[in-house]
């Protein structure tokens, strides 16, 4: 089992979710986050003063999947989130040692999805 964490542009979230649906990946957790990588931070104007800096608004997507779903999930995220511009985001993949469904106490492969 793997835990996939993707950081994507907020305005691409809807597309990513649709692509994930198409790939039959339904389990997901979404949070608002701030972040930056190569993209240097946003510029805003307050009373005529430009302020650059701080962090950019991003969306963080957490998806737990069985191993055979890792590739489809990654492809779906890229299809939904990629524009080719700096700031498209990243995908991180971690091993998941265990997964438990709270309602039934099922564990492992059963519990995911």
């Amino acid at each position: 089992m793997k835990l996939i964490i993707a950081i994507v542009q907020p305005h691409k979230l809807e597309d990513v979710l649709q692509e994930l649906e198409k790939a039959e990946i339904h389990l997901k957790t979404v949070t608002n986050v701030l972040g930056c990588g190569r993209q240097k931070g946003r510029t805003e104007v307050y009373r005529g003063r430009k302020e650059t800096g701080g962090l950019l608004k991003k969306v963080r997507l957490e998806i737990a999947v069985n191993d055979q779903f890792v590739k489809p999930a990654i492809e779906a995220i890229i299809r939904g989130a990629k524009t080719g511009n700096i700031g498209d985001g990243k995908i991180f993949i971690q091993n998941l040692d265990e997964c438990i469904r709270i309602r039934t106490e099922e564990k492992g492969h059963e519990a995911i999805g």
Partner: peptide, 17 residues
């Protein structure tokens, strides 16, 4: 209009100020 012309975009805070 000053902000639009000189800085970048018309802003709400600019209007309120």
């Amino acid at each position: 209009f000053i902000e639009w012309k000189l800085v970048s975009k018309p802003t709400m805070l600019g209007g309120a100020t």
